[in-house]
């Protein structure tokens, strides 16, 4: 079992991704959860770089960290914890845990050769395999071309724009209600440090 630099980097980013994700699910404080979400998504961006998809890595950081998570934080700030709930999780969380664990084991068992590896003689998983074929140097240009090529992804591309438009209009319709504005800036604060948010 040879450990290369790439394998170490892979392990580090995987740990960031999974550790951040665990914190998202477990943390009491919603603001912290959002920050951990950023960390986790940053780890995913690192994995994308390792997979030779730098454009997707950049897009991941710009869209997820720079936009979606910021939006989530804005939303968190708009809905302060009126009900100071001490419980973060449902009471039936063991069931969910069992379900998730079962799914994980099932996925790993069916999708990976890990089971065979373990069955043979202990842990002998190899961290390096032969490189798959190289990514063409102009793959990014090809991406741009394929997006506007009527024979390839033009239709999904325009549909994506349509989806964004519909989402934006719908969201503005939902959020922008000038008739009732309960979220005045001076609304009563919801008690002490909001660490008990669900």
């Amino acid at each position: 079992m040879e450990i290369t630099v790439e394998a170490i980097v892979f392990l580090v980013f995987s740990a960031i991704t999974l550790g951040g994700a665990l914190q998202v699910v477990l943390t009491r404080n919603l603001f912290h959860a959002a920050l951990y979400l950023m960390l986790s998504l940053f780890g995913v961006a690192g994995l994308f770089v390792l997979l030779t998809a730098p454009f997707l890595a950049g897009a991941q950081v710009v869209i997820y960290i720079g936009a979606i998570t910021i939006l989530i934080i804005f939303a968190i700030m708009l809905t302060p914890q009126v009900t100071r709930v001490l419980k973060v999780h449902h009471t039936q969380w063991p069931v969910a845990l069992a379900l998730a664990a079962l799914l994980f084991v099932g996925l790993v068992w069916t999708q990976t050769p890990l089971a065979d590896e373990l069955g043979a003689d202990g842990w002998s998983a190899d961290f390096t395999v032969e490189d798959p074929a190289d990514v063409p140097a102009d793959s990014l240009t090809d991406l741009g071309k394929s997006l506007v090529d009527p024979e390839r992804y033009m239709l999904p591309f325009e549909a994506a724009s349509l989806l964004l438009m519909a989402a934006l209009i719908g969201a503005v319709l939902l959020v922008n209600r000038p008739d009732d504005n309960p979220d005045a800036e001076a609304a009563p604060a919801a008690g002490a440090r909001p660490d008990q948010s669900g």
């Binding site: 730098p54 454009f55 890595a57 950049g58 897009a59 950081v61 710009v62 720079g66 990014l140």
Partner: peptide
């Protein structure tokens, strides 16, 4: 190769 996008990130 994605310099400008990196600046944004």
């Amino acid at each position: 190769s994605i310099g400008v996008l990196y600046l944004l990130a």
